[in-house]
Write a protein that binds this DNA or RNA. Structure first.
Length: 443
DNA sequence: TCTGGGGTCCTAGGACCC
DNA sequence: TCTGGGGTCCTAGGACCC
């Protein structure tokens, strides 16, 4: 089974913000260089799409469309609720992303795996998900492989359920455009189109040798199998993390090496925190650079030992920045660590697994994090559209917009009627950022 | 007011080793 | 007294996914 939550970020926003229900909502980057992460179905009707620049989406959508930055804590909580429901169906669940997962129904005890049986199961699960999430819906596909389940979940979006009966795989698959297969993006689609392959059926008549010559060894063999619905990929509950990174596109291109160095420090700090939280460390530090003209390059260095130390990550990345150069200005920097192993450096020393020449004890105890100072956020950055807030007198609400020293807040919550709008001073001491609202009814 | 941020996997060349 | 071959590691880039 494959589950895909419908327009997930936008659906959570509409749940928590009653005034947005039934209206176009776009979630994503709200700055000058932002792109759309999710558009609600109402916004899609105007042509807003994922991965489109937010500027383009603003041009297409009517005034009154909500453009919101993301509230990832809220999405994570709702996703966790859904994933738990899936694990009640079967112990073998593979989350693919925050809004998508595979479930191995054959790994569960006592399920009726007939077409009627899994159809009933799918409908029941959809109802349970909507009830537990406060109305977020999902589309489900069920079939004899990951491929068919995923194809199925896509066929009747939103709020769909498609069961592909055993033996019916090719009649479902072959009429579809090749681009519906995972792994066929713009570059592969272009190559396939050039040789007249438009549908999966077209793909299925090409020889393995043809496909390998066209798109390479691994990819060619993969497409050859998928076109025949030949897919025995297992559902894997926990794919280990392979890399941890943080990157940022700046509002304006940066040239000052001192400023860029501080950006590297702050990204290294976040990467280090995440490594330590996951009790992992890595040997290869990678710096990613996107220049003013959008050309992108990476420079990496592999260290003698794995690290989770932000200072070491930062100094390595700073060195790589000098190597990469900053001429013309940079629009993005990214810092990443890969080549991960499960034990953090401190633990290795403590367990005597690594010889550090006897200096570990002192170093492991005191690790100050990279920049000590936490700069005060400028007013434009303190409030962002969609943000949860609380006002001492006016109660809970969310930020609609800000500018010219003012913030506009709508005071409402998941279980209120659409609430009133108030414009307040951006430095109103009674107004504070808040946690995401609780959508579940207390029982 | 063009083009995010988090990832994974594959390919290819050079260094290095046996 | 040009030239091997296979395997692994490292680096860089590209395609793709959500």
């Amino acid at each position: 089974m494959h589950l895909d939550l419908d327009a997930f970020f936008a659906a959570v926003e509409q749940r928590d913000k009653p005034s947005l229900r039934g209206r176009p909502v776009v979630v994503g980057g709200v700055g000058g260089r932002g792109v759309v992460a999710t558009a609600s179905y109402e916004a899609r009707a105007y042509g807003a799409r994922s991965a489109m620049s937010t500027a383009e989406a603003r041009r297409r959508c009517p005034s009154g469309t909500a453009f919101l930055g993301g509230r990832f804590a809220a999405y994570r909580r709702t996703s966790d609720v859904v994933m738990s429901l899936l694990r009640e169906v079967s112990p073998l669940v593979e989350p693919v992303s925050i809004d998508e997962a595979y479930v191995d129904l054959a790994a569960a005890d006592g399920l009726d795996l007939s077409v009627d049986g899994v159809t009933a199961l799918g409908n029941e699960l959809k109802a349970r998900i909507a009830a537990a999430t406060g109305g977020v819906t999902g589309s489900i596909g069920i079939g004899t492989s990951k491929l068919m389940a995923k194809i199925g979940s896509d066929l009747q979006k939103p709020d769909g359920l498609v069961v592909v009966a055993p033996g019916r795989e090719l009649e479902v698959l072959h009429p579809l455009p090749v681009t519906r297969l995972g792994g066929v993006g713009p570059a592969t689609a272009e190559r396939l189109h050039q040789v007249g392959v438009k549908t999966v059926g077209d793909l299925a008549v090409r020889s393995l040798t043809d496909l390998v010559a066209l798109v390479g060894k691994a990819h060619g063999a993969g497409l050859y199998a998928l076109a025949r619905a030949d897919d025995d990929r297992a559902v894997v509950s926990d794919r280990g993390v392979k890399s941890v990174s943080h990157e940022e596109t700046f509002e304006r291109d940066l040239t000052d090496v001192a400023v860029l160095g501080r950006e590297i420090d702050s990204m290294a700090t976040r990467v280090g925190e995440r490594l330590r939280k996951g009790a992992i460390s890595g040997r290869t530090v990678t710096l990613k650079v996107r220049r003013y003209d959008f050309t992108t390059l990476t420079r990496s260095q592999t260290l003698p030992q794995p690290t989770d130390d932000a200072r070491l990550i930062a100094t390595t990345a700073r060195r790589l920045l000098i190597e990469a150069g900053t001429a013309g200005g940079l629009r993005l920097l990214g810092v990443g660590v890969s080549g991960l192993s499960v034990y953090a450096q401190g633990d290795l020393f403590a367990e005597g697994l690594l010889d550090d020449g006897g200096e570990a004890e002192a170093a492991a105890e005191t690790e100050p994090e990279v920049p000590a100072e936490v700069p005060e956020l400028p007013v434009e950055k303190r409030w962002w559209p969609g943000q949860d807030v609380r006002h001492d007198e006016l109660g809970s609400g969310w930020v609609w917009g800000r500018g010219l020293g003012r913030v506009t807040v709508r005071f409402e919550g998941p279980r209120t009627t659409p609430g009133p709008v108030r414009t307040l001073s951006a430095d109103d001491p009674a107004l504070q950022p808040a946690d995401p609202p609780e959508w579940r009814t207390s029982e």
